[in-house]
Design a protein around this nucleic acid. Structure first.
Lengths: 145, 145
DNA sequence: TCACAACAATTAACATGTTAACGAAAAGAT
DNA sequence: ATCTTTTCGTTAACATGTTAATTGTTGTGA
């Protein structure tokens, strides 16, 4: 009899939402003063790590849907955080790169962000923290397994 | 030196997003034919489990923000899935209850939803599944600990 | 009882999530 | 070469996430 739904208190989707809420709260607090959103922060993080990327790759690595990224890129371009140029080899592609102003936001919050991460490791314990990441990866359809 | 940000491939926020994406995909597929969204499904699930609830409690149990629930409730009322009545004892409060049509959506998909859950348990293994829920609960600020 | 704080819910404004339709450029087929 | 298909990205439309301001009620103290 697998015909029963789990109580909403033990529901995986709801647990994921709540965990995300808990994890993002301090990060959002940190970002409030910068005037950028959590997604814009993710875009900066990815660009800072990988350098200039085309839109598809950036959307994939930042876990954003295409239409969202289009809008986010427009906003960030206006703010001067990224540049967007057409690839001359393949004129369908857009190449997006982080600007000095964008990199400065990363640099200015590197320590604070690292402390937030350290806080979660302390809450869970290093071992649990790593296992959590592994378990989450098993649910990710895009993960190489 | 805790001054380094984790690679975005081992970022907890991004891992949570991707896991959620993986978990919700089959649920969204199931809901497509019903014409209701994932959040509306959550509202029905909670109401079906707990019965009539005031807006605050419902928002809390379904992990929805107040403004979102206000809009969702309006939509669901128009669809005839819930009823919304003012509490005569405290005229600030709204009482929300599931209708027969709403309950029918739950009943019609109970088996299918249970199979989806069973699939995730099979993917992770029963033990990992339970531990994942426990770890996620540790990140939830609202959890009783 | 009257002014004021506290509370429940809604509304407003902006950003993102989600799906579908669309436009432009490149790749393939005939 | 021309036509079709595929790919990359944008636009459109609607629903939700998020924060702040607002409305209607209740509770409280002078």
């Amino acid at each position: 009899m697998t015909n029963d739904l789990p109580s909403t208190t033990r529901s995986l989707p709801i647990a994921l939402i709540r965990a995300r809420e808990g994890v993002m709260a301090p990060i959002r607090d940190m970002l409030t003063e910068t005037g950028i959103t959590e997604q814009q922060w993710r875009v900066l993080r990815v660009l800072s790590e990988y350098g200039s990327l085309d839109t598809s790759t950036l959307a994939d690595r930042a876990s954003l849907l295409f239409p969202s990224l289009t809008r986010i890129a427009t906003t960030m371009r206006k703010k001067g955080l990224i540049t967007q140029t057409r690839d001359e080899g393949d004129r369908r592609r857009q190449l997006i790169a982080i600007t000095a102003d964008g990199q400065k936001i990363i640099d200015d919050h590197r320590t604070q962000a690292a402390q937030i991460v350290a806080g979660f490791k302390a809450t869970l314990g290093e071992e649990n923290y790593e296992q959590l990441l592994d378990l989450l990866a098993m649910l990710d359809p895009g993960a190489a397994e």
